[in-house]
Design a protein around this nucleic acid. Structure first.
Length: 593
RNA sequence: GCGCUCGUAGCUCAAUGGAUAGAGUACUGGCCUCCGAAGCCAGGGGUUGUGGGUUCGAUCCCCGCCGAGCGCACCA
């Protein structure tokens, strides 16, 4: 017989308790199946109680018995517990548990005691999350913004779940794209000096390139000026702009010209534009609340000989062969659809080679898991990277690649076009200025990352109840507002509230809100396991809804002191969980709005 | 053609293999002498693209088909 007025001990966990009870019942009913996993879920429907177990259904086949019959046996063998008000068998054989009021409201004390640590796990793995890693060839755009928001939230989530998380940005400072940016800037610089070299259509077109040219002009004057004839002397092909191959060859010719004519000056321009773009991107991300522990340079992999070492290692293990003068990695032996070049016939390593080295380096740093957040357009790249790791004798399952799908911006119902090269795209900075950091971070989290995102600018901007981020923040501000109604001496201390008698919390909505709070630690576990920070955004909407519903149904500041204190405790606990959850997503918690 | 990610209410999206598939939005009607109405309450809305299979049970797992996006470089 359940005793409903018994107070559960501090740190009481109903799920753990019920799991233990079922485990004991199981050993009595089916001693040979003691290893069956005990699953407890929170039913969607309130009439199904606080927790439901499908244990009887799981056993039906093995015991060759009707699930409902097994359920009855299990319930009969269930040890008595002070936290259970009712046990019911329902549906196909579910066992539904209804908790006592005291067991339901106990979470309030747990939240107030744990504070900012409520929900924190103790997972303890050493993880790395690498994200954004955009080429520093121009401003970050809204697609990078999604990767940034997702990666940052994921990293915070994993850290909150108890992992040790390193956040890293891989800087592609060694490739052809950087050369193209440097040559684009140089050509704009030459334009300032009336040297007429036609600007290539496949160069970087954005205004920021002209800005950097002006900076170089200011600092260095005309020392990098060369006549148009000299610049064009090593540019092959015709001016046919329809032939892509021809255009790329001409661009490469311009790069060669720049390196030859400028010598040290090329290194200066290259270094300047790299530093400029990196600094800009870093500032942009910092303002967005996205921080990195490390900025890993691709070039450093060459400088330290890591790339050569990785390729030599593959060669030693017999996974390379030479064809048409190039060195190929036999990735088809590891599930890839074709073999891949790691070193070109001119001796230059491919990007893939440095990426093998990079991932080898990551693995050598001793992470239990390496998580790469990539744009969805890179998905075809996964088999070859994993293949290379396997070929090197590493455990490729330690690498998880999460793909983030594309973002389309909609303004006035119209899709905004995006093209990096042409410079016609909305930057992350523009987006943040227009809709604000909080709405950005939250909107990016309103989709699973493997779902294409249509970002509705007008909705994100609207200061109305259409906007979910305001709905959640409003709940927080409302609680703060209630507390500010009290004189400082009328508000009991946190420790006092944590000890307050919660028996006055009898309303259905109060219990629903408590159940939502109790869900938070489980949410963290599941979301961290699934790399799914979006579920935190959905939880916040539910939590805010439960709070608003309660708030409209009952007053917090009532005359009766016992009731008032219990409700204050619940309001404070709600605010705490809102804070914990919003912090993980990098969204602020305004006191008023 | 091959591969990856998807297809859920009019629209935008959720749903560790569980019970009557949920929110928001839009539409309709209510709630401020009352702690913040950026709020709440009540309505109608569905063959989960489609056809099979596995399972006590499938939006979820497997196969086929239809449709969408993205890939299929000695670019990064």
């Amino acid at each position: 017989m359940a005793v409903s007025n018994t107070c559960p001990p501090p740190g009481f966990d109903a799920r753990l308790q019920l799991t233990e009870l079922l485990r004991q019942a199981l050993t009595s009913v089916a001693p040979n199946h003691g290893d069956v996993e005990i699953i407890l879920e929170r039913p969607k429907q309130a009439s199904h109680g606080d927790f439901a177990s499908n244990l009887a259904m799981q056993l039906a086949r093995a015991l060759k018995t009707n699930p409902r019959q097994i359920a009855e046996q299990l319930v009969r063998e269930l040890p008595a517990s002070a936290c259970i008000a009712k046990t019911e068998i329902a549906g196909a054989g579910f066992i539904n548990f209804t908790l006592t009021a005291a067991a339901r409201t106990a979470v309030v004390a747990s939240v107030l005691n744990a504070g900012a640590d409520f929900g924190r796990g103790n997972a303890g793995l050493k993880l790395q999350v690498e994200f954004v890693s955009a080429n520093p060839t121009g401003p970050l755009h809204v697609g990078h913004g999604r990767g940034a928001a997702y990666g940052a939230s994921l990293a915070s989530l994993l850290a909150f779940a108890g992992h040790r998380v390193a956040r890293e940005y891989y800087v592609n400072d060694a490739g052809r794209q950087m050369d193209i940016l440097a040559v684009s800037t140089w050509l704009r610089y030459l334009e300032l000096h009336q040297v007429s070299v036609p600007f290539p259509p496949n160069g970087y077109q954005g205004d920021y390139v002209r800005d950097m040219a002006a900076q170089i002009n200011l600092a260095q004057g005309d020392r990098y000026v060369h006549p148009a004839g000299a610049v064009l002397s090593c540019v092959p092909g015709t001016e046919d702009t329809d032939d892509t191959e021809n255009l790329e060859a001409r661009l490469d010719g311009l790069i060669v010209a720049g390196k030859d004519l400028l010598g040290e000056g090329w290194a200066y321009i290259h270094g300047h534009v790299l530093n400029e773009q990196l600094t800009d991107g870093r500032a942009d991300l910092e303002e967005f609340g996205v921080h990195f522990d490390a900025w890993f340079s691709e070039r450093s992999l060459y400088d330290t000989g890591m790339v050569a070492r990785a390729v030599a290692e593959l060669e030693k293990k017999g996974h390379l062969y030479v064809q048409d003068g190039a060195k190929w990695f036999r990735s088809t032996a590891f599930g890839d659809e074709k073999d891949r070049v790691v070193q070109r016939d001119n001796g230059i390593y491919t990007y893939f080679a440095s990426d093998i080295a990079y991932h080898l380096n990551k693995f050598e740093r001793g992470f239990d898991k390496v998580i790469d957040v990539w744009g969805a357009d890179h998905h075809g790249y996964i088999p070859r990277v994993k293949g290379a790791l396997t070929a090197l004798g590493a455990d490729a399952s330690r690498l998880d690649v999460t793909l983030v799908q594309f973002v389309s911006l909609f303004r006035d119902g119209q899709k905004a076009s995006m093209s990096t090269r042409s410079g016609e795209y909305v930057t992350l900075r523009q987006l943040r200025a227009e809709v604000g950091n909080d709405a950005c971070r939250f909107f990016y989290m309103l989709r699973k990352c493997d779902q294409a995102l249509d970002f509705d600018l007008d909705l994100a901007k609207s200061q109305s109840n259409d906007n979910p981020v305001y709905y959640v923040q409003y709940a927080h501000a409302r609680i703060c507002s209630v507390l500010s109604q009290l004189d400082a001496d009328a508000l009991p201390s946190l420790t006092a509230l944590a000890l307050t008698d919660l028996a006055p919390l009898t309303h259905e909505r109060e219990h629903a809100l408590c159940a939502r709070l109790a869900e938070f630690p489980e949410l963290i576990q599941n979301a961290a396991r699934d790399y799914a920070p979006h579920s935190l955004a959905f939880y916040l909407k539910d939590l805010a809804a439960d709070f608003h519903g309660w708030y409209n149904a009952e007053r917090v500041l009532v005359d009766d002191e016992a009731t008032r204190h219990a409700r204050l405790a619940l309001a404070l606990a709600t605010r705490q969980v809102l804070q914990n959850c919003l912090s993980i997503l990098g969204v602020s918690q305004p006191v008023s709005m």
